[in-house]
Design a protein around this nucleic acid. Structure first.
Lengths: 95, 95
DNA sequence: AAAATAGTTCAAAATATTTTGAACTATTTT
DNA sequence: AAAATAGTTCAAAATATTTTGAACTATTTT
């Protein structure tokens, strides 16, 4: 059971996802909660349009920084700190 | 003597600097060394043009990820792990 | 059944980043 | 003094990211 190396592509995807003020606001909002919330709640809280929300949540999810679960009409999102900790925590080692 | 909060702008600048394959290669090269080297050596090692080097080294330096010192004709660069550790290490705290 | 709600898709426009080459400055070598 | 070397500057072109609005799907409320 040896540790999996992290691919450069994943590292870049995560850093790109983190390198945007809107997405940092989303993460900040989610980080203050200990439960999932609907995308609409986040969007309303930080003042972005639905369309913009769809775009940014997709990037965060693809990077593994949030989890997303669609239930009927709504999509529930929550922060996923594991990806950050893994990718960023091992940055120097496997750079 | 309380810790300084890190501004969102700096966090974004650092993540943006890290979110590029050329710059990751530069950091990887520098990370394997324990001394400064001329920009030209790095550029030759990873196969980029002088112009491209100038562009990327400037971004890395502005983000605080490398130190740069001009001596006569050459510019010597070295990795600066402190910025990464500070900005990224405190990410969740002060998000 | 109609209206409202939550979110998505698509394409166009706006904006930001990266690459490229030519001309340049300053320094070192011949 | 001329040539070579290390890096910079500038502007244009190429590419990537972000924003916007209209039309849409699926679900829930009235």
């Amino acid at each position: 059971m040896t540790k999996q190396p992290i691919k450069t592509e994943q590292t870049i995807q995560v850093f790109k996802a983190l390198a945007d003020p809107v997405r940092l606001e989303i993460l900040q909002y989610l980080n203050g909660l200990d439960h999932e919330v609907a995308c609409g709640e986040v969007g309303a809280a930080i003042g972005i349009s639905k369309t913009s929300g769809t775009y940014h949540f997709k990037i965060l999810q693809a990077a593994g920084l949030i989890t997303a679960r669609k239930e009927a009409r709504e999509k529930y999102v929550a922060i996923d700190r594991g990806t950050f900790d893994t990718v960023v925590g091992h940055f120097w080692d496997q750079l």
